[in-house]
Design a binder for these strands. Structure first.
Length: 219
DNA sequence: TGAATGATTTACT
DNA sequence: GTAAATCATTCAA
């Protein structure tokens, strides 16, 4: 059973410092790459939930056919994408799932990074209960809807400032290898669906879909 | 006001 | 591999 290099030391008692806003105030491709290995922390009254980010996707804004802000459409749903970086954009999809994004770039530039999968590190009991005890532990948080269900992230977290508790990113063990490939579930987006805007930890068992043969090693 | 659909998950063949 | 679940949001009329 492969055990990660550094994650053994990360538990519910570790001191965790929120990443500063400058981390998010950059192009979404860079944030998507650099957020791999970072810790997603949600401090709840009952438990502190921690997951190490292993998969992400960049959404490039008004030119990107797959982005909610495509065509400069500013609506109540995507409003927080247009605001300052370092906030959570949480939306409801398929009548039953929530997705968590990090707002990137600067105010008026509506870009974001979708968190697609994490490796659960702390608060496992609570997450298992939320997720109705999946058959294999890898199925706990290996998808954008699954991790939101496990962390109980939903409408109340939309617009939440990620530069302080209760919901924030903190530094964590960086991946040894990072793969880059096409985004998932955006086939309707024409040539934008083919761009390599999905990033994966090449060693993680907790990704939603394995890297395809067309993936490139990006670090 | 109504129809179409989606940055998915799950169960089932 | 396919299909159902399930509804807020969006856009057309």
């Amino acid at each position: 059973m492969p055990t990660r290099r550094d994650t053994a030391s990360i538990d519910g008692t570790a001191a965790l410092v929120p990443l500063e806003r400058g981390f998010y105030a950059r192009p979404p491709q860079l944030v998507a790459r650099d957020c791999l290995g970072k810790l997603l922390v949600f401090e709840r009254p009952e438990a502190r939930l921690i997951g190490r980010i292993v998969e992400s996707e960049a959404y490039l804004g008004i030119r990107d056919r797959a982005a909610h802000s495509f065509g400069a459409r500013r609506t109540p749903r995507n409003e927080v994408m247009w605001g300052p970086p370092g906030h959570a954009y949480v939306f409801f999809i398929y009548g039953m799932h929530f997705h968590l994004n990090l707002v990137t770039d600067q105010e008026t530039i509506p870009t974001a990074v979708l968190i697609r999968a994490v490796e659960p590190l702390s608060g496992l009991e609570w997450m298992l209960q939320r997720r109705k005890f999946p058959k294999k532990p890898e199925l706990l948080t290996n998808g954008p809807g699954k991790l939101c269900q496990a962390f109980d992230i939903g409408r109340p977290q939309n617009g939440s400032d990620l530069c302080g508790p209760p919901l924030f990113l903190a530094s964590g063990p960086p991946p040894r290898r990072i793969y880059r490939c096409q985004r998932i579930g955006v086939d309707y987006a024409g040539s934008w669906a083919r761009r390599q805007l999905r990033f994966l930890d090449g060693e993680s068992r907790y990704v939603s879909v394995p890297a395809p043969a067309t993936a490139t090693l990006c670090r």
